[in-house]
Design a protein around this nucleic acid. Structure first.
Lengths: 171, 171
DNA sequence: GGAAGTACGTACATGAAAGTAAGTACTCAA
DNA sequence: TTGAGTACTTACTTTCATGTACGTACTTCC
């Protein structure tokens, strides 16, 4: 019953999407790039885990070094224990986070980034940094109320007979 | 509460989260970084728009140049018209995407990245590229079934009396 | 002359993500 | 002796994202 196919259904077919990319980078990348754009490509799942609401924040915090579960909970702000657990488990199963449970009675678990995780975290943080730095530019845009100016609500055009859209505009 | 503070509640208070970061970067960044980690910081909303399932893909496609709505729909693979519209509108209101509607009868609308959007798209793509290139490493991890090895399901420790967790582990 | 294409808007349905609350087995400080 | 802290799990609920379907005002293709 709805096994939350999240972390599942990926382990089997680990083939068609792993096309060798290093062969002729640059060219292929901008031309076809059929991987992440095609649905059901496992990379979309990884992307989701990494860019999920809490995933991003956890990766950023862990960039600062090893943290205990409760430290993470306090650092992130707003996470519920349930969500933090789930996020960490997904990141762990993707090999981005390393978990070490000390076998003591008041539970003590330490989380840190793996090599893989450190690389991903760097990318994620780069994005986050950009957003924080440019936030004012984005907010400025929102206030000027773009997004509904030219929008014609329905199709109010009436006497403007078609202009034959026979131009390739792009590509 | 529960005003669906999503797209709202951002326009007014555009202040406490816009702390000047450029002043003493590096240092502050790794030390406090209170912005994206604190809930209700508008940057989380921007992050969500940019890293949403379709947001990422649209940005990547638009990096290839101007596209019409229908071109985007075909390029992305799996998007419904509704979702594409919504995604584009959010990106537009964030000032990342520019929309030009030609006033002709078979509707013709062109979407392109703004300067701001191009910067964001570069970051996003960097992440996406990393994921595609390292996908095999992640998938390899999943198959070895990490994530439940050391996990003690409940609290099976019994005779291991507390080891005084009085260490600062990190930070 | 009916079908398909265009770029949406809107209503409804579903499924996934997230929150809430409680339980666990034990320790330590008050 | 009560309360808080630890690192979770499980069950249940709510919120949100997304999908599906249909309408539109017109044109072009078959």
């Amino acid at each position: 019953m709805k096994v939350s196919t999240q972390t599942k259904a990926v382990s089997n077919a680990a083939s068609p999407y792993l096309a060798r990319k290093q062969s002729r980078r640059g060219a292929v990348l901008s031309a076809q790039r059929g991987h992440i754009l095609s649905e059901e490509c496992p990379s979309q799942q990884v992307l989701k885990n990494v860019t999920s609401r809490w995933g991003v924040l956890v990766l950023i915090v862990l960039q600062g070094g090893t943290h205990r579960f409760s430290e993470l909970r306090r650092s992130v702000g707003g996470v519920s224990e349930r969500m933090l657990t789930q996020t960490l488990q997904r990141l762990e199963s993707d090999g981005l986070v390393h978990r070490v449970a000390l076998n003591v009675v008041p539970p003590h678990v330490e989380y840190s980034l793996t090599e893989l995780g450190a690389e991903a975290a760097a990318k994620v943080r780069s994005l986050a940094d950009w957003i924080e730095i440019n936030l004012h530019r984005v907010l400025a845009n929102r206030q000027t109320g773009r997004g509904n100016g030219t929008r014609p609500t329905a199709v109010p055009v009436r006497q403007v007979k078609a202009a034959r859209s026979g131009n390739g505009s792009s590509r």
